[in-house]
Nucleic acid binder design. Sequence first.
DNA 1: TCAAACTGCTAACACGTGTTAGCAACCATT
DNA 2: AATGGTTGCTAACACGTGTTAGCAGTTTGA
Lengths: 346, 346
Amino acid sequence: MATRKRVTAQDVARLAGVSRTTVSFVLNNITDMRISEETRQKVLEAARQLNYHPDVVARRMVTGRTRVLGFVLRQSPEQAFADLFLPQVLNGLSQAAARQGYQVLFEPIAPGHPNTMYARLVNERHVDGIILSGPRFDDEDLLRLHREGAAVVLIGRLPDVEIPYVDVDNVGGARMATEYLIGLGHRRIGLVTNAPLFYTASAERLSGYRQALEAAGLSFEEGLVRYGDFTPQSGYQAMMSLLQVRPLPTAVFVASDTVALGALQAIRHAGLRIPDDISLIGFDDIPLAGFLDPPLTTIHLPAFNLGWEAAEMLLSRLHGEEIPSPAARLLATHLVERESCAHARR
Amino acid sequence: MATRKRVTAQDVARLAGVSRTTVSFVLNNITDMRISEETRQKVLEAARQLNYHPDVVARRMVTGRTRVLGFVLRQSPEQAFADLFLPQVLNGLSQAAARQGYQVLFEPIAPGHPNTMYARLVNERHVDGIILSGPRFDDEDLLRLHREGAAVVLIGRLPDVEIPYVDVDNVGGARMATEYLIGLGHRRIGLVTNAPLFYTASAERLSGYRQALEAAGLSFEEGLVRYGDFTPQSGYQAMMSLLQVRPLPTAVFVASDTVALGALQAIRHAGLRIPDDISLIGFDDIPLAGFLDPPLTTIHLPAFNLGWEAAEMLLSRLHGEEIPSPAARLLATHLVERESCAHARR
DNA sequence: TCAAACTGCTAACACGTGTTAGCAACCATT
DNA sequence: AATGGTTGCTAACACGTGTTAGCAGTTTGA
């Protein structure tokens, strides 16, 4: 572990026979200071020869900015990695960040430590701002952080709070899915949610489902609703329960492809066929959706864009462009028609 | 963007009526310096009152260490996020890091910039060390970095290079899968790789397949091998081609569950049944594997542990514990028996 | 010819912390 | 009473950079 001595700008200056200040000007391309082409080259050559790399820690010290964004996962890692949605968000996030020379610090909540102080990230200056996925409304730290002027952007909505956020149009997507089933002639349409209702995304999808039903003059029935919990297992349970209902629904909207996977299996186990006996529509459009049996009709969510837009919003905030508060961006979804839905039988 | 003035240790010192040094001793619990309980409390109270948080950038400046690990994705983001394998690795990684007070900087390769200098991470002191997934043997930067004494741990093997690495036992896993099929009485066993052979994991899985065949006295046939490319699409193509072979293989080892998904679809489209007409075994045990139709028998890979072990190895290196070079750790796989394989028919 | 402007560079400060060396005041020992 | 040790604290340096103010030497303008 003999940590080799760092090469500093001072070393470069010495070798080039100039002052450290000059080295700084040359390497940062400060054109205001008129540096002769000759010394410029001397400095560049010396830097190359010594394999000099400026110390970003020292630079942060003086500039006051880290050029790092924190990506905080408020939900548990098991949930976060139940499917590819959040990884895709992370991907979009870090690509948008990289494009502007920023890096991403990945900060999942430690399991068993639900109150890990992610606020430290900002307070101790690990990062310039944070993107928080899966906000909870009882999160006092979050509200305080925002009150104190920290740069925060949410992925997912938080009602009655004016923190900027980016989200998918859950209500619209769920309405679209339900309307599609109605358009196929279904009148008895079940719902399996993606998660318990205290997740706002979950409540919103329920709301879109309900809106579509009522707009079509169909009544909303509690008895046709079951609650998933992120996993295929929960989808299996939920669908098994739904299959006890009489008369049987002719179609079911499952508000998560991952949960739908379990639902598919339950339907198979019950000896029913999709879409002949029962139509199924999912939500998310996970990459595998097209390769299920049958290929799953679903609502596509722009996961990559969600991350991208969140990063863009945070960065413009950091660069001082005032965003109208509350700043919000709702990303559109679209229907991907595959083979898991059919016309209702007479 | 009026960045509120930072509260520094100096401010705390002033309020408590002591020197900044004393504040540092109290807050860092330096017991060697004998601080009276009275001043201790004064300092703690002042810090609390001012909501003081030490500046981690300044601390890094003086300690010389960042307590950040870089997670570099050498493969393209599309590949990296083709399934949940790497996200799970990332999860294990950051949990192991968090347990020792380290954070993780996520650094995917920028698309279209294959030579992005991730070496900067170490040279410019963004991180203390890096974990690199998907190493390539033509990676000059990597070799130089290691030669210069940087702390690097690989996920995935690099032949003929003495950089510490953690990897899954691909050969053993593939042998296990193939032996399982042989044990069921299959004698004509096809192979669809997970990726082109210049990926070491791919070549290793092929090698395990071959070993198992030859150990059982079966001949290795080029004609029964097809090449996948991470995606279900490629699996579909590969299997379609394999289904042209006569006599038809009675079982196929697909060295990636994600690729297997496409293979499943191809078999369905050909009107054959699994496992009645043809047995299929996968590799990876993606979380969805048990919910496919039929539930997929596959080789489980310890993705979470892979990340965890890599982090542990890097951290012990950083803490000065000398690791015998080359340090390597090969994680065991195991077979998960589901319903996609059956006895060979007479 | 002399002041003014410009060219090319540098000294010195600031950022906020960890840590070493050392300084008074008090107590215990000879 | 003089010496030596202990207790409780602080002054001062170091980390490596960005940046402002300013200084010689040269050129330009009247």
